[in-house]
């Protein structure tokens, strides 16, 4: 897995923390971080990584992405058959060539009777999807079993509607 972002994105949102990744059941040893000077280089690095077809997936964070650049990435990801996950700021509403667009917001975590977090939850909305229907889900992560799952239907989605301000759009290509 390769994660690519310009250095200002790392400064603004923080760097991926190995111990934090482990808490989500991911192995930090399999992650390679690529820090670029600007967004142009980040886009180049993503395309390069996709064309090499080496990583299992490519992730990245860019703010500026025009339609042409997104088409290039979509094409590269499609040819390599690899998933490309782009994290974008929640406020941007440009068109892109991505296959899917997800909006992910935080949701109140499920707690045990001592008030400790038992399962963290996210409000996930599929906003755009080629050959598919958009929808809303509540996804949770079980810290004991290291497993993502859909939360029980009793969770009230209205609770987390306000979370969209921080939410990031996540596009999935390929």
């Amino acid at each position: 897995m390769l994660f690519i972002a310009p250095s200002h994105a790392f400064a603004e949102h923080g760097r991926p923390h190995g111990h934090g990744l482990q808490c989500l059941g991911l192995d930090p040893a399999r992650l390679i971080l690529v820090e670029t000077k600007n967004e142009k280089q980040a886009l180049w690095a993503m395309e390069e990584a996709l064309r090499s077809a080496v990583p299992a997936a490519v992730g990245g964070a860019v703010a500026k992405l025009d339609l042409k650049a997104s088409q290039r990435l979509q094409l590269a990801a499609g040819e390599a058959g690899l998933p490309l996950l782009l994290l974008r700021p929640a406020t941007i509403e440009h068109a892109s060539a991505a296959a899917t667009r997800w909006r992910i917001g935080a949701a109140e975590a499920a707690r045990d009777r001592f008030g400790l977090i038992e399962r963290t939850r996210w409000n996930v909305r599929l906003e755009r999807c080629r050959n598919g229907r958009p929808g809303d889900w509540l996804v949770e992560f079980d810290h004991a079993a290291y497993r993502f799952s859909l939360a029980a239907a009793l969770a009230d989605p209205a609770l987390s509607r306000g979370a969209d301000a921080r939410s990031k759009r996540l596009r999935r290509a390929g």
Binding site: G18, A29, L33, V34, Q41
Partner: peptide, 27 residues
């Protein structure tokens, strides 16, 4: 082959982006 191509990718990125730009996390 995958290991070799992985090294090639890392080399390529490092040459273009600079020596400290491609990193792995170690505990």
């Amino acid at each position: 082959r995958v290991e070799e191509r992985c090294a090639e990718l890392i080399d390529g990125l490092t040459q273009r982006l600079g020596p400290r730009s491609v990193q792995r996390l170690a505990p």
